[in-house]
C-alpha cells in the first residue's frame, strides 16, 4: 500500500513539475441550496440508524459519472447533482450536515450488494424501484419519476417524440433497457442504432453530429442538457415510467418510514423544488412532483 501511495505521489510530482498541479476546478458553482440540520433525531428500531449514530457519519452510495445527478468533479473531487442534493436533504433531516456525509461511488451493478453488505447506509443514484429489486433491498420514495426520453440538439425540431425517430441515428448504452426498447418497438432502423459504453460517449457523438438523439431516462438526459443548455435540449415526451427510489437495507422498515416522511415533507414544502431548480432544472425542463408510495 505504501509503495502504491509513493508511486502515485512520484507520478503526480513528476506531472506537477511540468504543470504546477492546480487545486480546485474550473467549473465550481456554489448555487446548491443549504439544508437546515435537524437536532435530536430518533428513529426507533432502525439498525441502520443505530449504526450511523455510533459512527457519527452517514455513508451514502451515489453515482459519480452522471452530470447533474450524481457526479464527482474530477478536478475538485466534489460531488454535485440532484441525487446528491436529495442525499444531503435526507442526511440533514436525520441530523447530519454536509460535513458529516461520506459519498461512496457505486456503479449500477454493485448496488444491491453494497446495501446487503452494509457498505452504505442508503443509496441515491438513478435507482429504479421494481419488484425484482424489492426482493433484495428496500426502497423509500420515489423522489423522482423518470421516464425514457430523448436528448437532441437545441436547434433540432424534427424530433418531437419516439414516433419521429425513423431514419434518425439513436445512441444509448450497450445492453441497457432503453436501447432494448428502441429495438423491440422498432423506433428506428437497426443500422441507425449506436451502442456505446457510457451515456457521456453518446452525448459526445451527439455534439459531434455523428448521432441525432441520445435516449435513456429523462433525469440523466436533463443532467447533460444542464451542462450545456444552449446547445442541447430534452424533448420532454417520456415513453416509459421509471420511479427513482432511495435504496435501503430490506428489513429496515423504520428508516424507510422516516425517509418517506422526510421526502414527503420536502416535496410538499419547497425543498424538493429548490434542489431540482439548482441542478436538473438548469436544463430548462420542468418536472412533475412525485408521489410517495409507501409499502
Amino acid at each position: 500500500m505504501r509503495v502504491r501511495t509513493l508511486a502515485v505521489a512520484l507520478l503526480a510530482g513528476g506531472l506537477a513539475l511540468t504543470a504546477c498541479g492546480k487545486e480546485g476546478g474550473p467549473g465550481d458553482t456554489g448555487t446548491a441550496p443549504s439544508q437546515q440540520v435537524a437536532a435530536d433525531v430518533k428513529v426507533d428500531g432502525s439498525p441502520t440508524f443505530d449504526k450511523i449514530k455510533a459512527r457519527g457519519r452517514v455513508i451514502v452510495g451515489v453515482k459519480e459519472d452522471q452530470p447533474g445527478l450524481g457526479y464527482k468533479d474530477p478536478t475538485s473531487g466534489k460531488f454535485t447533482g440532484f441525487d446528491i442534493e436529495i442525499a444531503k436533504l435526507v442526511a440533514a433531516k436525520l441530523g447530519y450536515g454536509d460535513d458529516k456525509i461520506d459519498y461512496k461511488a457505486i456503479p449500477s451493478a454493485g448496488r444491491e450488494q453494497a446495501l446487503i453488505n452494509g457498505d452504505v447506509d442508503y443509496y441515491v443514484g438513478t435507482y429504479t424501484i421494481n419488484n425484482k429489486r424489492k426482493e433484495q433491498v428496500g426502497f423509500a420514495g420515489p423522489y423522482y419519476t423518470a421516464g425514457q426520453d430523448l436528448l437532441v440538439k437545441k436547434d433540432d425540431n424534427s424530433i418531437t417524440g419516439p414516433e419521429t425517430l425513423k431514419g434518425k441515428k439513436v445512441c444509448s448504452v450497450t445492453g441497457s433497457t432503453p436501447i432494448q426498447k428502441v429495438k423491440t418497438d422498432g423506433l428506428t432502423e437497426p443500422e441507425n442504432i449506436v451502442e456505446l459504453q457510457t451515456y457521456s460517449l453518446c452525448v459526445e457523438q451527439l455534439e459531434q453530429g455523428a448521432v441525432d438523439a441520445v435516449t435513456t431516462d429523462d433525469a440523466i438526459l436533463k443532467g447533460y442538457a444542464s451542462q450545456s443548455p444552449t446547445t442541447l435540449k430534452v424533448v420532454g415526451k417520456t415513453f416509459s415510467t421509471e420511479p427513482y427510489g432511495i435504496g435501503l437495507p430490506k428489513e429496515d422498515k423504520a428508516l424507510r418510514g422516516k425517509i418517506n416522511d422526510i421526502l414527503d415533507e420536502a416535496i410538499n414544502g419547497g425543498a424538493w423544488e429548490a434542489a431540482y431548480k439548482a441542478t436538473l432544472g438548469v436544463s430548462g425542463s420542468d418536472a412533475d412532483k412525485p408521489v410517495i408510495e409507501r409499502y
Binding site: V170, N192, E204, Q205, G209, V211
Partner: peptide
C-alpha cells in the same frame, strides 16, 4: 470510432448516412 469524428474530416453522411456504416 470516438475521437476521430471530432476532427471533422468525416461526417455522419460520408459513408451512406447510416450510423452503423460510420462505426
Amino acid at each position: 470510432a470516438l475521437a476521430f469524428p471530432a476532427l471533422g474530416i468525416v461526417t455522419a453522411d460520408t459513408f451512406g448516412g447510416s450510423a452503423a456504416s460510420l462505426f
